Amino acid sequence: MSKVILITGTSTGFGKLMAITLANAGHNVIAGMRGVTAKNAEAAKELGALPNIEVAELDITSDNSVNEAISKTLTKYGKIDVLVNNAAVSGFGLLEAYSLDQIRNMFEVNFYGVLRTYNAVLPSMRANKNGLIINITSGASGHTLPFMIPYLASKFGVESITEGLQDELSQFGIENVSIQPGVYPTEMNNGSKSGIHADKPAIIDEYGDTATQQFNALGSALFSKMAEFKMDPQTIADGVLALVNMPKGERPLRYPLDAVAQGTDQEFIDARATIKAKWLAKYSN
């Protein structure tokens, strides 16, 4: 059965592949992106020429833009069955070398952008007592790594949203799932898409060669594993399609898609769920 699916951040990477994959499967896709007549005009034209895809101007850092895109979709289709929060920005650097404004910029996209889309879409989903919201987080969102602390903190925040709202929205039949990707060769990771990085060079200098060597070693490890396991971004698009096609009530809260992890991501998810259940039991007695 064809569904109405709105995806954020479709100009490149995972989002673009999701839009194409879901449209090819027969779903009506609203492909949200910024600058459809400016910086992303070419991507908008490419996607808009495909069957079952409608491109929408959508800047997740703007309340007005998010509300307008979702309002127009609801006016045309009467509902939104699935929302995919994909739009995000990465960033690297020492935590101390990040200004607070730079961290706020990171959260404005990765965290508050997700809250904006939720707030805009939930009234209609609650009225219909149906909906699926898929949030793209990170394979490391349950913990953290050096030189990626603001980025992973923002993604862990989205994990918290997903998990908490699963209970709050259950009475309305709205399901929430986080997809936890590992490292994939997308524009976010290959340097072609600008990120929000540490912006205090004087602090970076004070950390010296030790921090530089640690950062380079981490980057080399991540990229070598990406090549070793032939990480294909299409895996994430296929994962979204699989979640959309799953029967209601059978979707997992967390859906890891990281071959490099070799099952340890699912092990971590299961262990965390088990410990949480024990914690809740202690507070319930």
Rank of each mutant, 00 (worst) to 15 (best):
S178W: 08
S170N: 10
L243A: 10
K76N: 09
Q171R: 14
D238N: 11
I134V: 15
V82Q: 09
M125W: 12
L218V: 07
T162S: 11
S138F: 15
G142W: 06
P201T: 07
G182R: 00
Y283F: 11
T37R: 14
G91V: 00
S2R: 10
E175L: 06
L280M: 15
N216C: 02
A273N: 14
M226P: 00
R254L: 04
E46D: 15
L58W: 01
I7F: 11
L22P: 01
Q166F: 04
N245S: 06
N52K: 14
G249S: 08
Y118K: 03
M125K: 04
A41F: 15
F111C: 00
N67F: 13
Y283D: 08
A38I: 10
A242G: 02
V89I: 14
I7K: 02
S138G: 15
M125F: 06
T137G: 14
M188Q: 12
E42H: 09
P201D: 09
A217F: 12
I133T: 00
I133V: 00
A127N: 13
S65K: 14
E46M: 13
V121W: 11
T186F: 08
L94Y: 04
K16L: 12
V4H: 04
E68T: 14
T8W: 02
M226L: 07
V29A: 03
E228V: 06
L22A: 10
P123V: 07
G48S: 06
Y98V: 03
L83K: 05
L58I: 02
L222Q: 09
L115Q: 12
V36E: 01
Q234D: 01
E42M: 03
D205T: 06
T117C: 08
Y98F: 11
L95Y: 08
A237D: 10
S194Y: 09
S170I: 08
L243Y: 11
R251E: 07
V36R: 08
Q214E: 03
R126K: 09
N128G: 14
K193W: 07
A49S: 15
G26I: 13
V29W: 05
I236D: 12
Y184P: 02
V177T: 15
D167H: 05
A153E: 02
K72W: 13
G78S: 06
S124Y: 05
K282M: 14
G182T: 01
T61Q: 06
P146E: 01
T210A: 05
I53C: 01
F147R: 02
K3I: 01
